[in-house]
Design a binder for these strands. Structure first.
Lengths: 197, 197
DNA sequence: CCGATTTCATACCAATCGGTACAAAACTAG
DNA sequence: CTAGTTTTGTACCGATTGGTATGAAATCGG
C-alpha cells in the first residue's frame, strides 16, 4: 500500500549484477552500484539490505542464468556430450559481448581481505556445487558402465571444472570464443576411453 | 651518505608481495602493506614511489620466483615432459603453505575498476608471456617433427595455460596438491599422439 | 479530499582510502 | 664536534568508503 516503487526490483538487480561481474565485489562501490541501478542510496539499502546482501541477491540471479546454461548441457544423453556442450556453449557465454567477460564466480573474488572472506567462500561454494553436480552425473554413468571401468568420476569432474575456470581466466585476458573452443576440443581428447587391452 | 635505511628493501618488497598475493591489488591497503612491511607510510612512498609502483616492483619479484619454476620445467628434454613438470611442480607451488595459495597473476585482478585497469592488463600480459614462451617451445618441436604432424602449437600452449590457470582457481577454492596432480594427469591424456593411420 | 504510510532525495555520518608536510632523530663527511 | 643530508615518526590532507537521519513528495484507503 501507499507509495509504489518507481523502479523495477529485478532490473535494478540485473544492473547491480553487471557491476559486480565487471569490477568484482570489492571493486563495486555503492556509488557505482546506485548509478548503474538508477536509484539512490537509501532506496538501495531499504530494498536490498546492504552491500553484501545485494551481492547475494545479484549472485542468485547470476546462478539462475548459469543454471539455465548448465541444465541445458546436463540434458545431453551422455556424460561426454554433457561436457562437450558445457565447453562449447561456455566458450560463447564467457566471451558474449552482452555481458562482462568471464564467469562471475571466478572474477568476483579469488583474493580477498578479511572482511570479504564470506563473499569469496560463497563463490567457492558455488563453484564446488557445480563440480558436485558433474561428479554425481559421472558417478551415475560409471555405475551404469557407460563410462570406462577405472574412470574416477571425482577427478573427471574436477578436470572439467578446472578447464572451465581456466577458460574464464583466458576470456578475462581477451581470448575469443573460437580460441576457447579450440582449447575445449583439445581438453576433450583427455576424455576416458575403454582400455584397448 | 647520511642516515642509512633501517629496513631491507627486498625483504620489505617480499612482505608487500605477500599482501598483494593474498588480497589482490585493490584489497591491499597502504596501511596493511606498511604494517606487513614493518615500515611507515612516508618510507614506503620515498622508497617505492606509490602503490602501483610498489605493486610493479613486488610483481617483478614474483616473476623472478615464477621464472625459476618455469625455466626449471622448460629445461626438460621434451615438450611433453616440460608440461608434465609444469603441472606436477605447479600443483605443489599453488598449494604451498609457505605462501598465499594460487597464482598472483590470476588472483591479483581479473575484474577491476577503471582506475586499476593497468594492473589487470599487466597481469594479463604476464600470463600471455608465459603462454608465448610455451608456444615458441612447441613450435620448435613441431618443426623438428618431435610433436606429431597436425599439432597446433598455439592451441597446445593455450590449453596448457588454461589448465594451469584453472588449477590456480581450484587451489583458491581449497584443492590439495594431490587433487591438482590428479587433474594434471588427466590433462596430460589430451597430449597429442601420432595418428594411428 | 484527507490522513496514514511509504518512497524519495538531500545531506550527512564516522572510518578508511591513497598520499604528503613537517620536524625530530640519526647518520656521515668534514 | 659540527654542518649537512636523509630517514624516520606523527599528524595531517582531500576524497571516497559503506551506511543513515530526516523531511518532503507521492500514493493509497477511507
Amino acid at each position: 500500500m501507499s507509495r509504489p516503487r518507481t523502479f523495477c526490483e529485478v532490473t535494478a538487480l540485473d544492473r547491480a549484477l553487471d557491476v559486480f561481474w565487471r569490477t568484482g565485489y570489492e571493486g563495486a562501490s555503492i556509488s557505482a552500484l546506485t548509478e548503474a541501478m538508477g536509484i539512490n542510496r537509501p532506496s538501495l539499502y531499504a530494498t536490498f539490505g546492504n552491500k553484501e546482501e545485494l551481492f547475494q541477491k545479484a549472485l542468485a540471479r547470476y546462478v539462475d542464468l548459469k543454471n539455465a546454461f548448465f541444465d541445458n548441457a546436463m540434458a545431453q544423453p551422455t556424460a561426454r556430450e554433457v561436457v562437450a556442450k558445457l565447453f562449447h556453449d561456455g566458450a560463447e557465454i564467457l566471451t558474449d559481448p552482452n555481458h562482462p567477460v568471464g564467469c562471475l564466480s571466478v572474477q568476483g573474488a579469488l583474493a580477498c581481505t578479511a572482511e570479504t572472506e564470506r563473499v569469496r567462500d560463497e563463490l567457492a561454494k558455488i563453484r564446488s556445487d557445480y563440480e558436485a553436480r558433474l561428479r554425481a552425473r559421472f558417478e551415475e554413468e560409471c555405475r551404469d558402465g557407460r563410462l570406462p571401468a577405472g574412470t574416477d568420476p571425482e577427478v573427471l569432474a574436477r578436470f572439467v571444472t578446472t578447464v572451465s575456470h581456466g577458460m574464464s581466466v583466458q576470456a578475462s585476458g581477451g581470448a575469443t570464443c573460437e580460441q576457447l573452443r579450440a582449447v575445449a576440443d583439445m581438453a576433450m581428447r583427455a576424455w576416458p576411453v575403454p582400455d584397448a587391452a
